[in-house]
């Protein structure tokens, strides 16, 4: 119990820190750090999505960049049509309303996750990793060679999409919006984990045969979790597109899928705030070491290797003790 209380303290500190850092940045007039904190929040949101599949369900998806990128392209394409006024399909025009865009980003990402998940979940283990990676690569090459929306040059979003009551072009408004969505997603994750669904999902991860024996369908539960996971990551993609005001195939590249897994591992697999800690570490590392050497990825690789080989459990595992996860 002491360890659980310690994890809640760590979580509260992380949630407060992510709020206080941009507040201080705003106060000393450094909007760059507000945007950096927004990046952390959105990457963490994408990580929350993957954590659902990977952390709770044990599904090592190496293709979550596909949903991240699809969400991004939904935002980019809808904004593009709203900006140019050209209809998307017969009669349907674009939109610059975030809520409407997010709905479509989540729905379409969920649909893609349904197709890829239904195919990939026929297999498991090493096959699953390679297949999710391959399908993400398929989406990557598709966006690369489809000329209508920029192809390999990507698609700019000239004016950030709008959210009722906020001026999304102001860094703080964009931050608090991302932060709010991240917190909602974390509440959702915690509720799901505590619900019967979460229990079933974790039971399947630990022992699919035993779960099946008590009447839980492993395929159905895992697929449902995979779809929810894709939807959250897709939503994060739409928000990232608005933050950077640019979408390109790079959002779907295999490195992005790897980065999302790294975020979860650095933070702590299956931990509620694991993705938040992981995203913060990754972004901080990129800013600090990226400023010192252009070869910062070399050192990221060394640290990652060290974490995997010698310090399993990630940052939250280090601060709050080893998880019951296993």
């Amino acid at each position: 119990m002491a360890e659980m209380r310690r994890e809640w303290i760590v979580n509260a500190v992380l949630a407060m820190a992510l709020l206080i850092v941009p507040l201080v940045a705003l106060w000393i007039n450094e909007p760059f750090y507000v945007t950096l904190a927004t990046r952390v929040a959105i990457l963490a949101l994408a990580g929350v999505g993957l954590n659902l599949a990977l952390g709770l369900g044990g599904m090592v998806s190496f293709g979550h960049a596909a949903y991240f990128g699809l969400g991004g392209y939904v935002a980019g394409i809808m904004a593009h049509h709203a900006f140019t006024g050209l209809p998307m399909w017969i009669g349907v025009t674009g939109s610059n309303q975030m809520l409407w865009i997010w709905l479509w980003a989540a729905l379409l990402s969920g649909f893609l996750a349904l197709i890829i998940g239904a195919l990939s979940l026929r297999t498991s283990g090493i096959f699953f990793i390679m297949i999710t990676l391959a399908f993400a690569q398929m989406i990557f090459y598709f966006t690369l060679s489809w000329p209508a929306y920029g192809g390999e040059d990507g698609l700019p979003i000239f004016v950030r999409n709008q959210f009722p009551g906020l001026n999304t072009m102001r860094p703080w408004d964009m931050f608090i919006l991302s932060y709010g969505v991240l917190m909602l997603a974390l509440v959702f994750f915690a509720m799901l984990r505590a619900a019967r669904f979460g229990a079933a999902l974790m039971a399947i991860r630990q022992n699919p045969d035993r779960a099946a024996a008590v009447g839980i369908s492993p395929f159905g539960v895992k697929l449902a979790a995979f779809v929810l996971s894709g939807m959250i990551t897709g939503l994060a993609g739409a928000m990232m597109a608005d933050l950077t005001r640019f979408v390109s195939p790079a959002m779907i590249a295999w490195q992005m899928s790897g980065e999302l897994i790294v975020i979860i591992i650095l933070g702590g697999v299956g931990r509620l705030f694991g993705p938040v800690a992981g995203a913060a570490i990754l972004v901080a590392f990129e800013v600090i070491f990226g400023g010192i050497t252009e070869h910062w990825q070399f050192f990221l690789g060394l640290i990652l290797l060290g974490v995997v080989l010698f310090a399993r459990g990630g940052l939250i595992g280090l601060l709050a003790g080893r998880a019951r996860h296993g």
């Binding site: 990793i129 897994i261 591992i265 990221l300 690789g301 990652l304 995997v308 080989l309």
Partner: peptide, 13 residues
Amino acid sequence: HLDQVLATFALIL
């Protein structure tokens, strides 16, 4: 497999 993926991903970097 997750550890293998991560460690070899680190090797790529």
